[in-house]
Design a protein around this nucleic acid. Structure first.
Lengths: 214, 214
DNA sequence: GTCTATACCGTGATAGAC
DNA sequence: GTCTATCACGGTATAGAC
C-alpha cells in the first residue's frame, strides 16, 4: 500500500504538471490547478516536491536523463553500424532525431507533453539558460563532433549556426502549435511526427552541405 | 533598464510591456512591474488599454501590421527586380527574411524586443492560435505561393513542412536565448543577426531544393 | 511515512473615488 | 488622469488524520 499510494499520486502530480507546464508555461500554471488535475490535495505537491520551482525542475529532470541517454545510444549505434566508415550526414541527423521520434510515438502521452515542455524550455530566454546546460548541452557537443567528422572542411561557426536552425526546426515541431494544420488547410498535421521527421532529415542534411560542405 | 521619461506615457507603457512580455511571457509579467518600469501609476495602463490581456494584444498588434506590410513590399520588390524572370529560391527567402533583419538592426531596441515577443507567440501552443492567423498567416500564404512557382514540381505538403522548419529556425533566432553563444564557446553570438540571416538563406534554400526539388 | 484541511500572508487585477 | 480600496487568488507552512 505504501509504495502504490505514494507512487501513483506523486506520479500523477508530475504527469499533470508536465502537461500544464508544457501548455501554459511555468507562470501560467498554479499549484492548485495541478492538484486539481491530479485529484490530490493542494499541499501534497508541496510535500513531495517542495516549492513550485522545485516541482518544475523535477518535471523537467524526470525524463531529461532518459532522453539524453537514448540519444547517446542512438549515436553510438549509428557509429557502430557504419563499421569504421565515416557516417553520412543523414545517418548522424537520423540518430539525433530518432529518440525523439520514438518518444513521440511511444503511445505515452507523457512523452508528447514532455517534448512540448522541452520546446518551451528551448525557446525561452530564461529557462534555456537555466535548464539546457545541465543535461542537453553535453549531448549536443557529441553531435557537433560527429558533424565535424562528416564535414571535414566545415568552419566551427558555420556548424553552430546550422545546428541552431536544426534546433529551431525541431523545437517548433515539438511545440505542437497546430499552425501547419491551418497553413496547409489540413494537408499536414502537427501530430504527424513520421512526416515531420522524414522531411526534416533531408532538409537539414542539404542545409548543412550547402553551408558547411566540401 | 526600461523607460523613465521618454515618449508619451502610453507609449512608455507599451514599450516596457513589450520588453517584459518578450522576456517572461504573458503570465510571467504583472501590471505593477509594467507600471513601475514605465514610471507611471499602476492604474494608468488599465485606463489606456483595459485589461492585461488587451494590453498584450495592443503590444502585439502595434508592430504586426508594420512588419507585415514591410514583408509584402519586400516580396513585391523582389518580384519586380526579377523583371519577368522567375525568382530564385534565394531571392524569395531573402525577401521573406530581409524585413526582420532590417527591424533587428534598426537600432530601435523596441524592434528587437518585439521580435523576441513574436518568437514567443510563434512557439506557444496557446498564443499561436490566437494571434498568428490575424495578420501573419496571410503573408505566409503569399510566400508559399512564391515558393511554389520557384519549385514547380513540389508537392503542397512538402512545401509546408519545409516552411515549418524555416519558421522554427527563424523563431529560435529571434528568441535570443543565448544558447549558441554557450555551445560555440563564444564563436557565434545570438545577437549577430547578420551572421544568423546570412547563414540561414543558403541553409533553407538547399533544404527546400532537397525536399521539394525537381 | 503519506496525505488532508486549513490558515496565513503577500500580491494582483481592477473598479470606483477623487 | 491619478490614487486607493477591495477582493480574489496564489504559494506555502502547519497541524494533525490515517
Amino acid at each position: 500500500m505504501t509504495n502504490k499510494g505514494k507512487g501513483s499520486k506523486s506520479q500523477r502530480i508530475l504527469d499533470v504538471a508536465e502537461e500544464l507546464f508544457a501548455l501554459h508555461g511555468y507562470d501560467g500554471v498554479t499549484m492548485r490547478q495541478i492538484a486539481k488535475g491530479a485529484n490530490v490535495d493542494v499541499a501534497l505537491a508541496n510535500y513531495h516536491f517542495g516549492k513550485k520551482l522545485d516541482l518544475f525542475y523535477a518535471v523537467f529532470n524526470r525524463r531529461a536523463e532518459v532522453l539524453s541517454s537514448w540519444r547517446r545510444e542512438a549515436l553510438l549505434a549509428s557509429r557502430e553500424k557504419a563499421a569504421g566508415k565515416p557516417q553520412t550526414l543523414e545517418q548522424i541527423i537520423e540518430a539525433f532525431l530518432l529518440p525523439l521520434k520514438v518518444a513521440q510515438e511511444s503511445g505515452d502521452p507523457g512523452w508528447r507533453n514532455y517534448l512540448a515542455l522541452l520546446a518551451y524550455v528551448m525557446t525561452s530566454p530564461i529557462w534555456n539558460k537555466i535548464l539546457m546546460p545541465e543535461v542537453f548541452d553535453k549531448r549536443v557537443g557529441e553531435f557537433v563532433e560527429a558533424l565535424k567528422s562528416a564535414l571535414p572542411n566545415a568552419r566551427d561557426d558555420d556548424i553552430h549556426w546550422c545546428y541552431q536552425y536544426v534546433s529551431g526546426a525541431l523545437a517548433l515541431t515539438l511545440a505542437q502549435t497546430g499552425r501547419i494544420d491551418r497553413l496547409s488547410d489540413g494537408t499536414c498535421l502537427s501530430s504527424d511526427f513520421d512526416a515531420a521527421y522524414d522531411h526534416m532529415i533531408p532538409f537539414v542534411a542539404a542545409g548543412f552541405r550547402a553551408v558547411c560542405g566540401d
